[in-house]
Amino acid sequence: MASISSRRLAKELMEIKNDGCPVGINLVKADDFSTWWFTIQVMGESLYKNEQFTLQFRFDPQYPISSPAVQFVVTDGKEAPVHPHVYSNGHICASILGNEWSPVLSVIAVCVTLQSMLASCKEKQRPIDNDRYIKHAPENPKKTRFHYDDDT
């Protein structure tokens, strides 16, 4: 029997290929059921006009019971958006990826949520504890217990 995660990801991938991604989101690479990449752009007027970011999803066999490890790619000249909830190493402090994760959420749902998180940004700045955090940050953002102070 295929694991829950591979059947589920196969289904998500099929939907993406059949129906396409929402505007501003594009699948870059999904060759297996362990790591996927998307590009993400904010449509319309926003602080991130004309910027494009790359999102990386890593799945463990417990997906979707456990959340995917999601971060912005910061290698090969790519950068993480300057945002109060995005660290310069690409880690994202978003409750939806932590304690608010729900197994009914999907990869696309996460992309859309992050897209609107960027769209509603009022001021481009790093989290106040950025320097401290990236010095000791674990490789996998899921290992960090973020404190979600607001839900913007």
């Binding site: 829950i4 417990q62 019971i65 456990s66 608010e100 729900s102 197994p103 009914v104 959420l105």
Partner: peptide
């Protein structure tokens, strides 16, 4: 199967006894 995996992961991995519905 999903309920079983979800509840076990909440109890075992998160030590959680307040296990919410899986729906967002």
């Amino acid at each position: 199967g999903c309920w079983n995996a979800y509840v076990i992961s909440k109890i075992r991995d998160e030590g959680e006894h307040c296990i919410r519905c899986m729906t967002e």
